[in-house]
């Protein structure tokens, strides 16, 4: 039923430039994750103790939110491959909506930490927790901006089954944002 154009060539979905960006971003996050992991190895007790103050429910909920939003984006790509711009727009809107839910939950979490007097200088764990999650937070915003741009173009009929590289480009970036959170959540919230 759907034989997408770009899949036969074995090329990466979307614009190749976004992939260079994605690889670079993954490298940044990878370095950041390993810095956390090895800083923890030298301060196991401090990290374990401080981690108890995290709100794991928020973290898990946000994981589900991002997974779901990624799923919506998959559906948006499938829709445009069926040449259905309208459905593509709806799925994109849903994905962006989930992105906003993520931001709201995260902001409650941040507010909670700040009101507890926690800052970047509290200790190494919280330095990492705040830095990593804030850095990721900014990526969620950027991803939403990209998805919104795709949405507006899709709404004005800018994409079709034959030509929708832009949708795949935005989708790939959004999945990357999801991907790094999938590692961030167990690393910072669970492993101790």
């Amino acid at each position: 039923m759907d034989t997408p154009l770009h899949d036969d060539t074995g090329a990466l979905p979307g614009d190749f430039a976004i992939w260079i960006f994605i690889f670079a971003e993954l490298l940044v996050f990878g370095v950041f994750f390993l810095a956390y992991a090895f800083a923890r190895a030298n301060n196991v007790e401090l990290f374990n103790e401080s981690q108890l103050q995290l709100d794991r429910i928020s973290g898990a909920a946000n994981t589900l939110v991002l997974i779901t939003s990624s799923y919506f984006v998959v559906r948006a790509v499938a829709a445009i491959r069926d040449d259905d711009s309208r459905r593509c727009v709806h799925w994109l809107a849903a994905a962006i909506g989930m992105g906003s839910v993520f931001l709201v939950i995260k902001m409650f979490e941040f507010a909670d930490k700040f009101s507890a007097g926690i800052s970047l200088s509290t200790n190494t764990f919280f330095m990492f927790y705040l830095s990593l999650t804030f850095f990721h937070f900014m990526h969620v915003i950027l991803g939403m901006v990209i998805l919104a741009a795709v949405l507006f173009k899709a709404r004005s009929g800018g994409y079709s089954a034959a030509s929708h590289i832009g949708v795949e480009t935005g989708a790939s970036y959004w999945h990357m944002v999801d991907l790094v959170w999938l590692i961030l959540f167990p690393l910072v919230y669970v492993i101790h």
Binding site: V28, V31, A35, T124
Partner: peptide, 18 residues
């Protein structure tokens, strides 16, 4: 400046060659 700059500075500037 606060200590966290040692982490931020190290991590991000290590990626400046990219």
């Amino acid at each position: 400046t606060p200590e966290y700059w040692q982490w931020w500075g190290s991590i991000f500037s290590a990626l400046e060659p990219i």
